[in-house]
């Protein structure tokens, strides 16, 4: 569930504890960079370009940018 974030780099994270697993983010992701199972979700690191579309479409604000593991 954890991605190794490069130091100082902004990265998109899905907060799995708050996620409803609805799939809206997966549908808008242009890179096919989100994997969704019944109650598991993760960003596929090499594919994600941090484009933010998943953040914008999330109905419940559980996708965030973080830097060095801290929400920004």
């Amino acid at each position: 569930m954890f991605r190794m974030a490069k130091k100082g780099k902004l990265m998109i994270e899905i907060l799995p504890d708050k996620c409803d697993f609805c799939g809206a983010c997966v549908g808008v992701c242009p890179e096919d960079a989100i994997e969704l199972k019944e109650a598991e979700i993760k960003i596929i690191d090499p594919k994600c370009t941090n484009c933010s579309k998943c953040i914008w479409s999330c109905p419940i604000e559980v996708i965030k940018f973080n830097k060095d593991g801290i929400e920004v």
Binding site: A24, G27, C29, D32, K53
Partner: peptide
Amino acid sequence: VESRVGRWAGLKTHIDF
């Protein structure tokens, strides 16, 4: 809505946000 299967087959299924 999440439809990834089509993408794996090379179809353009992602939707404009």
